[in-house]
Amino acid sequence: MTKIKSLADLKAMKQSIQEKIDTRAKGNAEGLVQVKVAMATCGIAAGAKQVMDYMMAETDKRGMNVVFTQTGCMGYCHAEPTIEVTLSGKEPIVFGFVDLKKADEIIDKYIKDGELVDGIIPVNYETINK
């Protein structure tokens, strides 16, 4: 159990986690792929959980190096379930209306070969830089 007892502890922890998150965001030499699945109530109701389970099982089966993270609402309620895929060294891409068939296509084309597939949701907001 990591107890944070002081400001120094918090800073140290932040540092180490940030490195991890940075690697995740920017990808690394081994071509780690990150997939974020929007799992707020709305996403789950639209089937995000099944999609995430399916994608985890499928990528595992094919021996792909993919890290899955569940996140909160991305805001695209009109296109749930939504997932964001970040390939090593590339900008994150958001896909909407991801059902199992679409998930398969994303794994097969985008994650495997970097080939985009229909159904991209263009991101149109800015987040404050931390």
Binding site: A40, Q70, T71, G75
Partner: peptide, 17 residues
Amino acid sequence: YKKQLRIALRNCGFIDP
């Protein structure tokens, strides 16, 4: 692209809650 600015939602959809 500057129309939307996420402050309260800064982490929604980015981190594992």
